[in-house]
Design a protein around this nucleic acid. Structure first.
Lengths: 139, 139
DNA sequence: TATGCTAGTATCCGATGGCGACTAGATAGC
DNA sequence: GCTATCTAGTCGCCATCGGATACTAGCATA
């Protein structure tokens, strides 16, 4: 095996106003898509868009989420500026999570997904049944 | 440990027109959301919405996708009725993937996500920098 | 004969996610 | 006083998931 030759395909530097492109593995928008394309993040965002909520309230509202994933997801949503966290010094201490204005713009983009899932579920399930039948018998 | 008593909480059968609810762990829409909230599925859907493409073309267009994930994701998208697969008996055999009408409705719901990622990337990165600085020093 | 093309599958291994136990500080009950 | 409980998490263990690499099959080319 000879050493693979790295061939420079871009003779000129990239244009200054280079548009973000999710299809490039290294593009920052890919990381954003990664974050957005996350079940728990989507559900949290939808719930918080409806109003500020405490940790355990979210936990109870989101069926099947683990504490680890909830706290992890909230932390990265906060880091991304989509959710804000407010500690209230009661006893025991309570923590309130709210959606930020930026988060609200994302919610607007994400909510159609929930709508889609809820409206097209029947079509998807029908297709799955058809597909699985075709696997056993001859298609 | 006494046997846990299962208490029937629904004395009457659930209403017929029970609305799907993504927040219930067992709701079929949750599985759909799970599928949709997938980086690769989103990218494939966006590419196929622009026109039919072969396996290796998709592979080349989607930076960083492995063959395993590409074939796996295409298979489940096909099962869900979102993309269709056509084998063309050339030599070597080629396989064409196209978006279905159902897939096109999902694409309409998913594309805003890409738009959002591409327009708000700067705000997200700024927030991340702010957050990470706040972790080192005192917030 | 060896290599490349096509569209995958098989296998190994590190990363990710889920589960349950555990933390802290104050309060309620025995 | 001692234990249980509430809050919002963290920690460790383990199963599954995702990625990298190697391999398949049939034909064309060097």
């Amino acid at each position: 095996m000879g050493e693979p030759r790295i061939i420079e395909l871009a003779p000129r530097p990239l244009p200054k106003d280079l548009t973000p492109n999710v299809f490039m593995a290294e593009c920052p928008t890919r990381r954003v898509l990664d974050r957005v394309a996350d079940k728990w993040a989507v559900l949290i965002l939808i719930l918080l868009a409806d109003g500020t909520k405490r940790f355990n309230v979210l936990k109870r509202m989101i069926g099947g989420v683990s504490q680890k994933m909830l706290s992890q997801t909230l932390k990265s949503l906060e880091r991304d500026g989509l959710v804000s966290r407010r500690v209230i010094p009661t006893v025991p201490v309570t923590v309130e999570y709210s959606i930020t204005p930026l988060g609200r713009t994302l919610h607007a983009a994400v909510d159609p997904l929930r709508i889609w899932a809820e409206t097209h579920i029947a079509a998807v399930e029908a297709s799955q049944t058809r597909y699985d039948r075709g696997m056993d018998q001859d298609g």
